[in-house]
Structure formats: structure tokens, C-alpha cells
Simulated scan of single mutants.
Amino acid sequence: MKLFDPRPKTSRDSLFDRERELEELHRAVDRGLPLVALLGVRRVGKTSVLRTFLGEVNGLYVDARGLVRRADLETRVADALSESLGRLRRFLEGVRGVSVAGFSVEVRWRGRDSVSLAGLLSEIDKRGERFVFALDEVQQSKPPVSAELRSVLAYGYDNLENVTFVVVGSEVGMLRDFLALEDPSSPLYGRYAYEVHVERFSEDLSREFLERGFREEGVEPPPGVVEEAVGFFDGIVGWLVLFGRGYVDGAGSVEELKRAAVNLAAEELGKLSPRERMVLRAVAEGCRSWSEVRRYVDERFGVALPKATLSRIIEKLEKLSIIRGYEFLDPVYREAARRLTT
């Protein structure tokens, strides 16, 4: 798989400069830590790190985005088991409620001789080998399944000595809220999550990434193209891939490719509420304090935000990992926010 392939990477051969993150994950699992959080801003490459790591251990990957019903969770777990059957067959054979036939897995979640998710993980735990159960973007799951996932994590934390749970999230504050480690009402209260952070590339690494990617494609861009992309995309590997792929495929000029990235970010920000978009616009236009944001929203949009409302909005935008301290974590989103209207 080449560097400019937009799909998540699955091996070290195609993953660029993530040795530190992979080794941190390996150390955490080798130490038997029960709960690991893999964190980083949007498009920084967390899923590629995770999928590559899971290719080197006994583990299962489940995409938790948008999960609402238990049936949806059960379907995704069963599909993930089938996709990884070649590596996981020995963990599943003989487990009550699990049928392995050819290259597929059928799980009986209800009725006679059925198994629950916690029960399935308990059976895997009995095999005596280290196993990783990974939930990607788990903070985007919704009730009632989100509560069930927290209960499974808590059960595994307390009872499954051979299972490590890895939870992944780009909305860092929301992920921490989902785990609720400091909330007495949460089943995970008082537990500890070891954090591994996937960082953006430095300017030098961004430059090397693009230059290597262009060499793989047999393309030599004119002087200045790489430097412009390095300066604009600020080490966010997903944007660098999008730019490189688009440039190689002739999808547009440098400016058109930058605009395409901003448009994509604007689509995501457009899903926020009107008041949240107002606040982001204010921050994008240079407001660097609570009072400046409130004044800008009043003068620009004619909306006087109550103090409590503004505080809640800023807190939410920080938990979504869009801003921190009145600064955007990704310059592409800053440019996109400048286009926001109510």
C-alpha cells in the first residue's frame, strides 16, 4: 500500500514514521494494562496506527461510530470476527454460541446456547493468550449501546486478565467523558486508562512524507508545491494524503486541492448548531477571550449569548478537539470556520 492510498494502513511497510506509537501500544499490552486510550486530532492517522498494531497482535477491531442498538453492535462484532478469522480461529473454536464455518463466523447472541459480548470475551480470556479488543471512535456510540459498552469495559477491566481494551477517539474530551473515569455513577469510576497520543508530523516529517509519496507515484512536482502543502496542512497526515492523492491524479491545482480540504472540513462543521458555528467563526476571526467571542457574536450576528450558554459551547468545542485555548487545533478547520454562516 502506497503512502498516498487514502485507506487506513495495515502494516509497518506502508505506515510512515509511527514507530513510537506502535511501541507504546506494544509495551502497554505486554504489561497487561487493561485499558488503553489512543488519542489524537482528526485525520492524524490513529486508525492506521491501530490497524497496523492489530496486525501484529491477537486482536479485534470494531468501528463504534454511530452505534445505537445492541443488534448493530452485535453485527459489527460478528463481521469483525469473520474478517479476522484467519488469525483468531483458535480463540473461537469450541466457544458456546459461536459457529466457525469455512471463512465466516456466526454468533448466536440470543436464545438457547447463546453468548453475550462479555461472555465471548470471557471465553477468549480463558485461552490464556494476550488479546486486544479495540473500539474505534467509541465516544460516537449512542445510548443504549454506549452504556452497554461501558459496562463491558468495566467487566473486562475487573475480570479479564488476558484482555486489553483499546479505545480510540479524535474527540478527546468526548472520549474522556464517555469513559467517565471520575464519575461516581459510571461503571468505570476509579479505573485508569493509559493514554497513547498520535502526534502530527513536524515540518521535516511532512516534507519527507510528501516527497516519498511523490517518488512512489513517479511524480516530481514543481518547486514550491511541497513547501506550500507542508505550511498549509500543518502535519495532519490525512490532509497530506488527500493533497498528494489529488495532485498525482490531476484533480486540481494546489489552490484547488487546498480549497477541497477546506470544503470537506466545512461540511463537518456545518453539522454543529448555529450558535456553535457563530462561536467558531469568532475564534477563526481572531477572538482570543471569552469576552471577545461574546462581543463578536453580538456585533456580527446580532445574538447576545447568555454567559452560561457561551461557556458550555466553548467547553463542547474543546471536547470535540476543534479548538483549545481559543486556537484551532487544525488550520484547515480554521479556514473552514471563516466560511461558516448561521
Rank of each mutant, 00 (worst) to 15 (best):
E327T: 10
Y326H: 05
P221E: 07
E93S: 10
Y189K: 03
V36R: 09
P34D: 06
E74M: 02
K2L: 10
V225H: 03
F328P: 00
E335A: 14
E227H: 12
V95T: 09
S289R: 07
P184R: 12
L153I: 14
E216H: 07
R70N: 08
V145G: 03
E217D: 07
E74T: 01
N162P: 06
S141G: 05
R312T: 12
G156R: 03
A71S: 14
L117C: 09
R27M: 11
G119W: 05
V219N: 06
E227W: 11
L85F: 11
G325S: 08
E23L: 12
Y61L: 02
Y155G: 01
F133W: 01
L160Q: 10
V115P: 03
F243P: 01
R31A: 15
W109M: 11
E292G: 08
A337P: 04
V29I: 14
P6T: 06
L280R: 01
L320Y: 15
A180M: 02
E195R: 12
D63G: 03
G238T: 00
L305P: 05
G270Q: 05
L121S: 04
A308M: 11
R51E: 13
P274Y: 14
L73Q: 04
Y296A: 03
A78V: 02
V332H: 04
P306A: 10
G119N: 09
G270M: 07
E182F: 08
G224R: 13
L15K: 12
G55V: 01
E93N: 08
R339L: 14
S14G: 11
R87G: 05
A337E: 09
R70K: 14
D298A: 13
E327H: 14
V196F: 06
S273K: 14
S185M: 08
P223V: 04
S253T: 15
V44P: 00
W290G: 07
T10R: 15
R294M: 01
D72E: 15
G238K: 00
D298H: 10
S289M: 04
L3E: 04
T75N: 12
V283K: 01
V293C: 02
A308S: 15
T309M: 13
G119T: 06
G244I: 02
E182R: 15
L264I: 09
L269N: 13
E318D: 13
Y189S: 07
A80G: 07
L264M: 13
L67S: 01
V172F: 13
V303I: 13
L269Y: 14
T164I: 04
R275W: 07
A251I: 04
T10D: 12
S151M: 10
A337S: 13
W109S: 12
V152K: 02
L60A: 02
G270A: 11
F209H: 03
P221T: 02
E211G: 09
A180W: 04
Y326L: 04
R130N: 09
P222E: 11
G156E: 06
S202T: 15
F243D: 02
P144W: 10
E292D: 08
S48E: 00
G173F: 11
D17T: 06
A308K: 15
F91W: 10
E327V: 07
S321A: 13
R87A: 12
L88Y: 02
K307V: 13
C287I: 00
A101E: 15
S170G: 09
R43W: 00
V237Y: 01
V237W: 01
S104F: 06
E19I: 05
V168K: 13
F178C: 05
G213K: 04
L85W: 09
R130T: 08
